[in-house]
Design a protein around this nucleic acid. Structure first.
Lengths: 106, 106
DNA sequence: TATATTAATCGTATTTTAACGATGAACTTT
DNA sequence: AAAGTTCATCGTTAAAATACGATTAATATA
């Protein structure tokens, strides 16, 4: 029974895990890559690019939004998604620092 | 029904997702941090450090082993775990490059 | 040799993810 | 006003993840 974890781990550990988990599915990686490519903000034509149902893409977008990596703006009937540079930088920092903690042994 | 993904995504996308997913749980982050601290290789006293059952820790270790981030060596009755520097570097590279792809917009 | 320790694996329960189609709300276009 | 787009959400299903205790195999110690 997957219990609440917040208790047992530090905020830092939890944040690292949350950010990493958001990248933990190839569809979400693909979505982000697509947002890179079309470096202006891009709307739901993500669905065209990725062979998954519209509702599934929407779910993945929601997951990315939840940790703050992306941000959606309603523009008429469409919604424009873009990467949140602030959180992207945070992720770079937090994970980069984590990666750098290990310098080598063994 | 979570279908096979290998088909729809590139190897790179899949690898990024697999590596990220391995970091996608605070217990695994905590395990890795513990391996950093005790920078010589360290055995199952991880169980002492993290408030989870032995079998659960074992499962998390298995997950980390699966992507190659850590590596266990049997030493008598105990097992000594350490980070695989090669894979750690790969992770740094692969994810670092991914992070760097986005330079900013919006 | 008998007992204890270590850690992987098994079996199980619960929760979360991932996927889809269908529906519905909001905005556009005709 | 009516019909069409767009996209979030709902409901559902199946699979994977998470957690635990119990068991087992291996090694170590008494």
């Amino acid at each position: 029974m997957p219990t609440a974890k917040t208790e047992n781990f530090t905020d830092q550990q939890q944040r690292i895990a949350d950010l990493a988990k958001a990248l933990g599915h190839p569809a979400r990686v693909a979505i982000l890559m697509h947002l890179f490519k079309t470096n202006s903000c891009v709307c739901g034509d993500i669905v065209e690019e990725i062979p998954l149902a519209q509702s599934t893409i929407s779910q993945h977008l929601k997951a990315l939004k939840k940790v703050g990596i992306i941000h959606g703006e309603v523009e008429g009937a469409k919604t424009c998604y873009c990467i949140n540079p602030k959180v992207w930088q945070e992720m770079k920092d937090v994970l980069g620092q984590f990666f750098g903690t290990f310098t080598g042994c063994c």
